[in-house]
Simulated assay, not measured.
Amino acid sequence: MRLTLPRVVMALIGVLLLTYAFAVAPATVAGRRPEAPPDRIAQATQDVLTPAVASESPRPAPTVFPPTGKAFIGVMTDKGPYDFTPVDGFTAAARYQPQVMLFSVGWASAPFDRSLFDQISDRGMLPMLGWEPWDQRIDEEGRKQKLANREIDKIRRNQPRYRLSHIARGDFDLHLRSWAEGIKSLGYPVAIRFGHEMNGDWYPWCESVNGNRPGDYVKAWRHVHDLFRDAGVTNVIWVWSANVRWNDSTPALAPLYPGDSYVDWIGMTGYYGSGAFSQYRSFDTIFKRTVTEIRAFSKKPLVVTETGAAEASGRKAEWIREAFRTLPAYPDIIGLIWFEVDKERDWRIVSSPAASAAFAEGVAAPRYDVTWSSDAVPRTEVGR
């Protein structure tokens, strides 16, 4: 006989009725209290007919980082996660715990090191990797020799081994896969800012130098992104980060953009106190043109991935205060990372009590009351 659900149910009901007839009913007749009253038999029958459904409490919605209407504040130092002393100084001066830490790694001599990411995460900060396809030692050597900045640019940007076309054709795939597997194993989000300021002429991955050609940057970016995707890496926030445009002498940004399906956050680098902005230029003057240009081809969230102010004209603290007054007018900017380094200029907020006080005053606003956690989901759409 073929077993079917109706037949199984009828058989079970029959067993229950026989149990009642031979055990419960005689006890009742004998004047004894029945051990299993009829209503329990009925309930047992109903239990057979009705499948049990396990009750599960609903899971809480994941935290979005940063929440809508908020913006995070991050920091970058010259020591990175190798020495947190500058981060501690920044935190004390700002009276504020940064939520993101940006640090740079070149491709020439840096195998994946999990401890760098864990140390940042353990301090309550999202690690943002500035991933730079070059031999950074050339830059370091030029600075030791105290060469002028433009002289250093000329030397370091000519590195044929790291041409964009070489990245796109797979010359570095073994290196990329080792990092992809390492980042995948972390189990928490990591932001990757690959080949930043590609619209300049000072890095070997800029399209205008090192034998690169138009379109090569997008091909290289997509190759790196797709390799991570094919390796099953799902915990990366991809950050495409250009230098701000101050006039038409620098390349337009749209041809360098790999597309919204390849990018989560759009970054911008802009400083007050050097180069085109040696004279006083407000935050709005430095960033507005670039924001407008970006919005013509993407609506992805914006992050100021590098900024700082020097004591040009003695107006550093003034610029910091003005910047924080202006930022709420840019609701699409979901984060700002301060360059806490004494390099070409002293960009640090710890450079003076006035700069520290101005920064502390700015980040005390409720808009920056944000906490990062390793299980937070990055906000990848404006307003969500």
Score class of each variant (00 low, 15 high):
Gly14Asn: 08
Ala376Thr: 01
Ser274Ala: 07
Ile333Arg: 03
Arg157Asp: 04
Ile286Val: 04
Gly195Met: 15
Asp260Phe: 03
Arg213Asp: 02
Ala30Leu: 14
Ala54Gln: 15
Leu49Gly: 03
Lys343Trp: 07
Asp171Met: 10
Phe283Tyr: 14
Ile349Gly: 01
Trp265Leu: 04
Ile155His: 03
Val304Phe: 04
Pro60Glu: 12
Gly308Lys: 05
Ala54Ile: 15
Arg7Val: 15
Asp122Ile: 10
Gln159Asn: 05
Ala30Pro: 07
Pro34Trp: 04
Asn243Thr: 07
Thr290Gln: 04
Ala360Lys: 00
Phe117Asn: 01
Thr250Tyr: 11
Ala148Val: 13
Arg222Val: 11
Arg315Gln: 15
Ser298Arg: 10
Val64Asn: 00
Ile138Glu: 10
His225Asn: 05
Tyr188Asn: 06
Val48Phe: 04
Gly130Ser: 13
Arg163Phe: 00
Pro251Asn: 00
Ser55Ala: 12
Cys206Val: 02
Ile183Ser: 00
Ala30Thr: 09
Arg156Gln: 12
Lys154Asp: 14
Leu253Ser: 09
Ser356Thr: 09
Pro60Asp: 11
Trp202Met: 08
Ala309Gln: 03
Asp88Pro: 13
Glu132Asp: 07
Ala364Ile: 06
Ala61Thr: 13
Ala254Met: 07
Asn247His: 14
Ile294Asp: 09
Lys70Trp: 04
Gly314Met: 11
Thr269Gly: 10
Thr19Gln: 06
Gly200Asp: 06
Ile334Pro: 08
Val233Asn: 02
Arg379Trp: 02
Trp319Glu: 00
Thr19Glu: 10
Leu49Arg: 09
Tyr272Met: 14
Leu147Met: 14
Leu164Tyr: 06
Ala25Thr: 05
Ser298Asp: 10
Ile337Arg: 12
Ala61Met: 07
Tyr217Phe: 15
Ala36Lys: 11
Thr68Phe: 01
Trp319Phe: 08
